[in-house]
Design a protein around this nucleic acid. Structure first.
Lengths: 347, 347
DNA sequence: ATAATGGATGACAGCGCTTGCATAGATGCT
DNA sequence: AGCATCTATGCAAGCGCTGTCATCCATTAT
């Protein structure tokens, strides 16, 4: 039996513009203007209003504000996963840039499921967001229609390879080209018997694009991709380790293995280390993403760095700078941030 | 000069309840009820309304809905960082659980800055969220006041050690106890000359609590913490590696080193590996978090696993189940999810 | 038959803010 | 002094929903 009176729960914030206005002795509109810094305001009034708001601990109701002004300072961000540091970094780029502009991110995680993406985007749209940032460029037709009919600013990020036209704007890199670049690098180093270890590629479309680019480049140079090992489930160090073990059990003669990403490649690295395989002499290892962990291994991982944080920032920026549809049509729709091949010590 | 007519930008979603109502031949209230599944509705009406909404591609305006009904289906989530997989996992737990319940997360990243936390929470409150989930239990006095006066459901997560009373509910573990547990484990293994390598501990309060718990347990057993090396900046594999190198340069006689977390510890691991130090014989290494990467190293890292995903889920759940303030006062305010010491092969 | 019951729906007043328009002093200009 | 200009502020009409209350048929009970 605790007696609560001083700390009694207040009737959930009965604090409105009107209260502040009353206390400052001005009208609601004036308070509204002061708080949003618009229109000419006498200095004395401004001070009085700010003081009243401060003393009352007034927090404006943005729901009402957004409804009244159409435009919600909310930006929907849709990523496929948060198991992996990759999207967390993208998210960081997005939120930081948005915060500078006073906007906030509402997030949705699809689990690489396009049907779920559709539902999530729809739910996000219900907040009438200023814009939408979505990882990936592959969507269900229904989602495309929804977005097209809706007119919301949308930025597709991470990826720029695709036959489908951009929904609106894109910020990313060509995963096909990244795969091809790695193939070219490995070929230049003299490797000829290639293997691949990946995770569930039917869901991770960008990983597939890298593999396709990789294989295509090999083919172009008349070299075959000898073997592929796909591990079920999401990418992880453990999966990469197991995958390489399986792959090598069936194909002892490989001289280089490309992994779907760095997590997987680090797993491969550990497998080699644990089994006395020297890299790159006994086996070359390459990944994708350029994660820190790969670069801190005793032997730096050969990989391709994707500018994730920057992609997030740029994506947010696209939302911020997007004005009318007219201007949108004028600007280039796609920003290719490129990538950087890191020639490490494992390949 | 592009002529756009077919694809002309629509007047941003002029689609309201009224349009759907008109098309279905019923009133707005009926549409509202059908869409929210409340009240008795004739089956024929339901079908007609759903059909009209579907055909029109109607997406309800939740801003308006929330404003009218007070209760916004938005939950603010505040984390200190997204550099690290740890909070990404927490976030995943939160968003997944919220999504099941039809709620959405608006996120804020503080960068371990309490002043910024205050601003972010204030901005989040402006959306009149159903609840707030905040990592950490240390806040500015002003933030405490704001939240207390506001009556919003809030869950502090990750940490449960602290003199300050809980804002509302807590879900986490005792970092002090985790540090102490590791000290006990290492002492039991016979180590006696301890070192510590940490990152910017003035900001990462939980890392400090672990260190304090660790040092206290050593002291209780009459053992000293010989040396501490603090690396500036956030935790990272690189920082851990550098930190250990520095520490050992000054103190060659240590037999065990405790790291502020697993990222740092993995860096230490690589340092040992690169310098021919055998673990645990030449040097024992221990971390905190129980990250996958640590468990996939050739020698499994000795660490303490924190149930991050579960913390996120539970935190979301607290928001979902929280009813009135009365009931809130009745339930236990703190959930201790505990932790698990993983006796790996490095200590 | 007629009243009572309940299922199905519509009307309408807000929710808390923004914003165009009106108003009222205070200045400036001729 | 008289009128145009500003600057500073208030008024009031919504923004697109929700929720209460009233209404209107069908049924069923009497």
């Amino acid at each position: 039996m605790t007696i609560r009176h001083e700390t009694a729960p207040m009737p959930a914030s009965p604090l409105r513009l009107a209260e502040v206005a009353a206390r400052a002795g001005v009208s609601e509109s004036t308070v509204s203007r002061v708080l949003r810094n618009i229109g000419p305001i006498a200095e004395a009034t401004r001070v009085a209003v700010l003081k009243a708001a401060e003393e009352l601990g007034y927090v404006p109701n943005r729901l009402a504000g957004a409804l009244a002004s159409t435009g919600s300072a909310l930006v929907g961000v849709v990523v496929p996963s948060l198991d992996n540091i990759v999207f967390a970094e993208v998210l960081r780029g997005v939120t930081e840039r948005l915060e500078e502009a006073g906007l906030q991110a509402v997030i949705g995680v699809t689990g690489y499921d396009l049907a779920r993406e559709e539902r999530i985007v729809s739910a996000l749209l219900a907040w009438r967001p200023r814009g939408l940032v979505i990882a990936g460029i592959d969507h269900t037709p229904r989602l495309r229609d929804l977005l097209a009919a809706n007119g919301t600013a949308v930025v597709e990020m991470m990826d720029i390879d695709g036959a489908e036209p951009a929904l609106d704007r894109r910020v990313g890199l060509s995963h096909g080209a990244a795969g091809a670049a790695m193939a070219a690098h490995l070929l230049a180093r003299g490797y000829r018997r290639f293997g691949y270890v990946g995770h569930d590629i039917s869901r991770d479309i960008r990983a597939r694009k890298r593999l396709d680019g990789f294989a295509a480049e090999l083919a172009r140079r008349g070299v075959a991709l000898v073997a592929e090992e796909m591990v079920a489930g999401p990418s992880s160090v453990a999966a990469g380790r197991r995958g390489l073990a399986t792959l090598l059990a069936a194909h002892r003669d490989l001289d280089a293995v490309y992994f779907s990403n760095d997590d997987m490649a680090v797993g491969g690295y550990f497998h080699c280390e644990a089994n006395g395989l020297r890299m790159p002499d006994d086996l070359a290892i390459a990944g994708f993403n350029g994660l820190d962990i790969g670069q801190e291994l005793p032997r730096r991982l050969t990989t391709v760095r994707s500018p994730r944080y920057r992609i997030g920032q740029l994506a947010a920026e696209q939302i911020l700078t997007r004005q009318g549809a007219a201007e949108a049509a004028a600007k280039p729709a796609t920003i290719d941030v490129g990538f950087e091949l890191i020639a490490g010590e494992t390949a």
